[in-house]
Write a protein that binds this DNA or RNA. Structure first.
Lengths: 223, 223, 223, 223
DNA sequence: GATGAATGAGCTTTCATTCAT
DNA sequence: CATGAATGAAAGCTCATTCAT
């Protein structure tokens, strides 16, 4: 079964496994819920449909998740953490000294890593994107915990490379925003807007990194 | 009333006025629908709630819009067109020769213009962002009409400035994607993620334009 | 229709009519609800059954009553007031001077009157008896409003006739309790325990009144 | 544990013990069921809640009682018998000759005895009062077995004391009804309506007995 | 014997839509 | 045109009962 299992599922299971074992039925419920939430949106998905897709009775869903909302949260909450996990690890900043000689090395690594993550967890990330704005618990966690944490870590990195003269003088958060825009612009286009297009990820990553570093202006004296 | 009217409403009215007159009741319905769809999402909004907020009977909604979905489309469809209108106007490309000496002038103007548009129409743009992926008619129009049209126009502009040596050699669509990412990154952060923050738009626009043109690397020998 | 209408219904309608008109459908809903609540108890009655008996769609019930509990309260609350109404009327005590020469005249009148009331409203009174203990709002209103009010009025009457030497010296509330026990003992036996038995109400009322006044001991020297 | 055990429980256990042994789990189930049925009513109590309060699995309840209704009956049926037991014992009438010189001695003894019984078994008696009317088996047993048996025994006692000239000439069943009303009036008020009030039972019993014998009219020539 | 996950019928409630007024 | 009462299908959820472990 592991082979057929979609990436996001084994990913999610690993997250939850650590706390408590999930029964096979629970896995089928989560699987059906993620598929359907991603396809039609949370509010337009009925518990009856999830139960049917999962091949369980409707009551079974409610034995494991008190409410439909609970089911949503049990999917979204652990993934939200994992989405930003690489940036909030305690020893994240130390890594800098040893691992990334230049800012663009860091950019390249981070972009590659998060792109793989989103590729593996596309349906859940799609659910997150759509549901976070409409559920206060999620929105608050996102705006008041995750974003600030990630932003702060990135700010330090930016400051670090600004001190080394690798990054232009500009408010660090502005640097963060623009880097993130460029990276996310590609990841979202690639995974959600045109997933069917045949992307050459390595080439595109390289392009984005170069864009972030040098912009669109041709090298002076090149013409 | 025009003074109190929210921007997006008069904007929307102008769009529809051209075709047919709207009654005052219809306006109140649209107003209530937009507010509520933006706040809770289309699927989680009941027609009863819209009717109540609009101060009309439930039946009245269905006199003007055959179904709830119709009501959504009557809001989203014209705005979708207007969102990309500046880029698909017939004489858009001519403007280039006469108006924008440099690529960054065009960027600056376009970004300023679309930012104003989103600021004025924030609730409807939010509805669009959330509903387009879940409604095939909308998704198809978006992916197969709007995006290709806009992309094509922008591609020509990029080609134009590449020919002039203002833009680095790179597949034109890649240039488009990266410029759009940077511009949208700011617009969406500013209008939806942190609308409450006190932004200095002119300054930020300038920063984004400079970022697009030169990236994050400091001028060589500048320090 | 008025002729076929059951007594408790016209009774209840009069109560509610004064505030606002009830539609014919609402009447049928109340009728079906009262019948079924009385027969099977509130908790064992489904709204589907009420709707079917009333010949309306289930949704119609919830258009008129926000919840099933609301429906119960709309039946029980006005009747609770009416059950004790004769005792809490503002001019109730004045009546004493003019109308009832002796305590037993008052007893006879009150018993006759409340017996008629319960006979006419038997199903609703049955619902009250069973539901008051399980619904805090009802229980509180009953124990902390209705009973104290009625008890206080009756206490004054008892005191009045004690002063005249018609009633034995005993704590007035004890007198009230025993009179009420005797009266209710008959009313409940007659209306709920053995309603099918062919009661001669006037004779029984007379017996109860004589019992309350003289007890079971034969007149001394009478035999 | 016997010390902490509530009165009604040891009472019920003695009833059932005679037939078959109960396991400790069964006792906990009964305990939880009685508490909850009394608090919220049979129909509003879920087997899940009983299981949880009893600290057993839901399945365990159904191992001992085929259905939820069975559980109710196993509580109510033996108590119904015991409630009227003193009056239907085979040698009940003989006792009269030897034990009670006067009717009021009998009244006093019976009232004292049944009051103690209800005090000890209050929750179960409450369940009986509420459920008997809604369950045909219980209702039939109550109306067609218990009441007739008790009534007949009491009728004979009344006839006995009427022959001795201690009780006024009146249909014996009427005497029974009025005595029972007076006695139950106190017991129910004391145990269910105002159990929190600080009652002096002996005093009240004496008052009720005197009320039954002499009514409310003061002794002639007393004023 | 005890467990508790699973069931599916049934519950109360919501909702888009219709239509007589 | 506007209304809002009525509808009934479908929603989320509960629950007594079963059964493999």
């Amino acid at each position: 079964m592991a082979d057929e299992m979609e990436q996001w599922l084994s990913s999610l299971l690993r997250l939850i496994d650590e706390d408590e074992k999930m029964t096979e039925r629970q896995i089928r419920i989560i699987q059906a819920a993620v598929d359907t939430f991603a396809e039609k949106g949370y509010a337009s998905t009925s518990t009856a449909e999830i139960a049917q897709k999962a091949g369980v009775a409707e009551g079974t869903i409610f034995r494991h998740y008190k409410t439909k909302k609970d089911l949503l949260l049990s999917i979204v909450t652990p993934m939200m953490s994992k989405l930003v996990a690489p940036f909030v690890l305690r020893d994240f900043l130390k890594v800098l000294d040893t691992e990334y000689r230049h800012f663009e090395d860091f950019l390249r690594a981070a972009m590659r890593n998060r792109l793989e993550f989103v590729k593996k967890n596309a349906p859940i990330v799609k659910i997150m994107l759509h549901e976070i704005p409409f559920h206060p618990e999620l929105r608050d966690k996102f705006k008041e915990e995750l974003i600030p944490q990630v932003a702060e870590r990135l700010r330090r990195i930016v400051t670090h490379f600004q001190a080394r003269g690798e990054i232009v003088e500009m408010p660090p958060f502005a640097v963060v925003r623009m880097s993130v825009s460029a990276v996310l612009g590609y990841i979202l286009t690639r995974c959600f807007l045109f997933p069917e297009y045949d992307w050459n990820d390595e080439e595109e990553i390289e392009r984005v990194v170069r864009f972030i570093m040098h912009g669109l202006t041709p090298k002076s004296g090149a013409d």
